[in-house]
């Protein structure tokens, strides 16, 4: 673990490209998903087994939450928003594994996610409302507010990034300080607290992203 989470935690280089701990952890998560999901849903049945039932519950719960936030069919938004939540949960929970650190504890990963959300908001907004109509909302309620609207778009994306990063980074800091001061057993309750914080931060990030996308796609569908 890097002593300073504000600095890049490079493990090795692939040519000129530095490969950090966050990237490796993400690859591990991707590998786990790529292995587990095809196995778990290799024979989806109308009468699901335990694993399929859990996966269905997770997906339908996320879909139901998104339907309440978006006020429309959630399935077009599930790949992005559902993946955000699942990935963030898995990434934030990586802290419980020895030698792993949550990718979200480094600024690059929240920045990457915030960048994807920022771009997705505009893609969904334009595809849903049309470019002119979507861009016109920056001039509302008055064209004079255009700079503030643009600034709002940037700052909310920035806050999305910083909120996730700050919470996870500070949690890593606290754990590191506790390990340094009190040994290995004392941080256990804080690790449990970290699990809760990780899930809550995943939920907050996903919900805020859904709210931004809902505002972009406009009024509730019939």
């Amino acid at each position: 673990m890097n002593a300073n989470p504000l600095l890049p935690d490079t493990l090795f280089h692939l040519g000129p490209v530095p490969i950090g701990r966050a990237v490796v952890t993400t690859w591990v998560i991707m590998a786990a998903l790529a292995l587990f999901l095809p196995w778990a849903l290799r024979n989806p049945s109308m009468k699901p087994g335990a694993v399929q039932a859990v996966l269905e519950i997770v997906v339908t719960t996320i879909a139901r939450q998104l339907r309440e936030i978006l006020g429309r069919d959630p399935w077009p938004f599930m790949p992005l928003l559902g993946s955000l939540f699942i990935y963030l949960c898995l990434a934030n929970l990586a802290a419980v594994f020895p030698g792993a650190s949550p990718p979200t504890g480094h600024i690059e990963t929240p920045a990457a996610l915030a960048l994807v959300v920022f771009l997705s908001v505009h893609v969904f907004g334009i595809s849903s409302r049309g470019a002119r109509r979507y861009l016109r909302h920056y001039l509302e309620p008055s064209p004079l507010l255009l700079p503030l609207n643009v600034l709002s778009e940037l700052t909310r994306t920035f806050s999305l990034m910083i909120r996730l990063f700050g919470n996870m980074m500070s949690h890593e800091f606290v754990i590191a300080i506790l390990v340094f001061l009190a040994g290995f057993l004392l941080p256990v309750p804080f690790l449990l607290l970290g699990i809760m914080i990780g899930i809550i931060q995943a939920y907050i990030f996903t919900v805020l992203s859904a709210v931004y996308i809902a505002a972009a796609v406009g009024a509730v569908e019939a």
């Binding site: 490969i19 998903l33 849903l41 559902g82 993946s83 480094h106 990963t109």
Partner: peptide
Amino acid sequence: WTLAIQTVNFLVVVWLLNRFLYKPVRRI
């Protein structure tokens, strides 16, 4: 570099989950 890789990684995660989780679950 890490930011770019993580962005691509997340898009791969999106594809993975969409391919192996959302679509089968939605179909069923």
